[in-house]
Every structure is written in C-alpha cells, then in structure tokens.
Write a protein that binds this DNA or RNA. Sequence first.
DNA 1: AAGGCCATACCTGTTTTCAGGTAGTTAGTT
DNA 2: AACTAACTACCTGAAAACAGGTATGGCCTT
Lengths: 212, 212
Amino acid sequence: MIKIVIADDHQLIIDGIKSLLVNETTIQIVGEAKNGEELLRKGLLMNPDLILMDLGMPVMDGIEASRRIKKDHPAIKILVLTTYADQKSIKEMLKTGVDGYLLKDSGKDQFIEAIHAIMNEKSYFDPRVTAVVMKSLQPQKKLSNTPTPLTLREKEIVRLIAEGKSTHEIAAAIHLSLLTVETHRKNIYTKLGVNKIASLVRYAINEGLLDQ
Amino acid sequence: MIKIVIADDHQLIIDGIKSLLVNETTIQIVGEAKNGEELLRKGLLMNPDLILMDLGMPVMDGIEASRRIKKDHPAIKILVLTTYADQKSIKEMLKTGVDGYLLKDSGKDQFIEAIHAIMNEKSYFDPRVTAVVMKSLQPQKKLSNTPTPLTLREKEIVRLIAEGKSTHEIAAAIHLSLLTVETHRKNIYTKLGVNKIASLVRYAINEGLLDQ
DNA sequence: AAGGCCATACCTGTTTTCAGGTAGTTAGTT
DNA sequence: AACTAACTACCTGAAAACAGGTATGGCCTT
C-alpha cells in the first residue's frame, strides 16, 4: 500500500485526484495540505511514501517545500503535479531532487504509471517536461550576433579566466609572460565588447566555452 | 522527399536501415559513409537534409563529425543512432547541437517518427536518453549540497556583481556605502568559499540566481 | 612582396578587488 | 534580557585588473 499526501491549494484538484484514485487498491490518500507550510506541519505526520506536490501554492510554494522535505526526509518521494512547464520552474524543481514531474492535464493512466515508477525507485517526467529540458541543453542558435571570433589561444585564456585563475596564474600555467596574457585579455575584451571579468564569464558560459 | 545520408562503420547496419526505409516513399537514402572523414568529404556532396550518424566510428567519430557539420552547415539535421546511452556521449552530442538521439534497438515506427519530427523542426530523443539526462541534472545524493545560505541582500549583490557592475556602481545603484557593499561581498565570498569574481559568477549562474 | 592575422612581449598609470580586521543598529527569538 | 542574524559602515595595505598604448616575428593569402 502506497501512502500519499496531496499538497495543493485548490480543493477541487485534491478532490479530483482522490476520486481518480478511489478504485486503486494499492494507493491510499492519507492526508492533504493547502500549502507548503501545512504540508510540513501536518502532512508529514502521516508518514507518507509519496507527496503529490503543486508548484504554485501560497505561504510556502512547492519548490521550497520540496527542498526542505528532500533535505530532512530524503526517503519520501515527491511527484510534482502542476500546470506549467516553463524552464525555470522545471530546473528549480530538478535541483530540489524531486522524483517526478507531471502536468495536470495528464491522463489517469499516466498518473498511475508515474506513481508506480517512482515507488520502484525510478523517476518519471512528462515528455513535455523532458522536451523543455533537452532543448535548454542544446546550444541556442538565435545568438547569431556572436560568431565567436576568438582565436584558439584566446578561448583557452577565456576558459582559464572563467575558472577563476588570475593573470599571473594563467601565465604560469601556459608558460607565457604575464604581459602577454594581459594583452590577450585586452584583445578578448575588445572583441567581445566587455570590460569586466564578470561579463566575460557570463559570455563564456553562454557560449559553452566551459565544460561546466 | 527527405534526402538522407547514413554514416556508420558497419555495412550491416547501413543495409538494415536501407531495407527498413525501402517502402518509405517520403524518404530517400542518397549516400553513405564509413566514418566521419568520408562523411564530410563525400556524404555532404549529396546535399542531404538529414544525416543518420553513428557515434563510434574510426578515423573521425560521430561527435567530431557532428560538430563540424553543425558549424558549417547548420541547416542539415543530424539524428544520432547508436548503441550506447552513457551520460558522457549524450552530453557531448547535445553540445554539438544534434537534433535527435535514437538507440539502435528502437523499432521501425520510432525511427520513422524521429525522422519526421526532426524534419518538422522538432527534436527527438529516445526516452532512455532523456532519462539519463534528467537523472544527471538531479542532485547527487552524497555530494555536499549548497543550500544557498545567502541572505536576500547578498543575493541581490551577487546579481549585480554578476551583471558586471563594480562595487562603486552597486553602491550607487542601491544607495549604500561603497564599504558596505564590500563587506557584503566579503561575506558572500566566505559563505560560498570563493575568492574571485569569476568563481562567483559561475556559482550565481549555476544556482540560477540570474534571471538572464 | 605586401598586408593581415596571430601570438608574443613590453611600458605606464589608474581603478578595482581582495584580505584582514572592527563596530553600531535593528528585528526577531529564546 | 540576552542572543543572534542581517544590514550597515569604516580602515589599511597588497594584489589584481583595466586602459591606453607600442612592437616584433611567423605564417598565410593576395
């Protein structure tokens, strides 16, 4: 028997899910909460195996609640159930370590499948969610205004700068004069139209010059 | 009519794919290559719309070949067709900007579906591939996690630093003393264990502190 | 052979960051 | 009432980054 707590600020959603699962003999709804705070205070007392978590709740949202639960009770599974699939929410949720991510217009079958997959130590993500994530990992082709005119040497130095090395350290690392490295850095700044290390690092990360 | 070139070092695979597609009236195999070098030298002359790319080929592997093709001919679609779904290969391939990733034991239907999805400007990734990627994005349980202990003020200053503003500019922007901003910065560095703007910017981007 | 790009190296001076402190005020908690 | 966290502000000196040059040799292309 899988014990589930539902956290959602819309009573209608809670009731809908309940009726959806009423015939499922392997699943039992043992509690509900209207926000993250209530979930932590009351929901956890029911010792759930899995939490159905809405993202946008008042008082404490699903992201913060997930973070805390995964920190203090890593064994409890979390299935996010929400309407949005925007990149920011998804990435935030992934970082908290949730086990699955479903969109609210998913069918009942998908819903049950997700719960069982998660309880079997697997994860379950809606295909639309994975699509967003995969896309975000691919290089953005729209940034055509920067054809990366940097030379190999310059790219190498950009990498080292972005890694936090000082000019002095870079010079030592690639056996060049301090002044040469400075010259390269100045040329890079001119080419990229930046004038600060901070801007340079952002550029390097956006262009994928770093192996993360 | 979709013109396809196959790049694979196993003739058997090439023949298998050909016979698989022989009844597809919308797809035409216009060329083949046994490695990345041959693909670039001869395969591209056929003006393909899409390349079926094997990962592990001699002379020049699929990753390097994909990188070059996407650089010089971004309009040509690339569908990776391989046996492995290990994290490293997948990430490397994603970085080159390929349009899809199929495992070789996929069924014919999935195969055709992938080709058409890609030709319609969408991407297609085998669910097992997306599973690997999604998992890699989730936090590693053992590794020391950074629960972002920064205060609101500190996060604000991290944002401004990462935007390339100097301490002086930040002080002016949020009406604080130059020295206060410096103090905040020092506290941030201590908390995060960094000691350079470059490292700070990388942290900020990784933690999603920047709206970007 | 001339011109351009790349990589190398130097000079000078200013601005900014970094590292080590100390210290007061406010708001919230025990 | 004592304690703590967060925010504020200051001081000093060293290290680095930034900005503006100049200059030379190698290589490639026209």
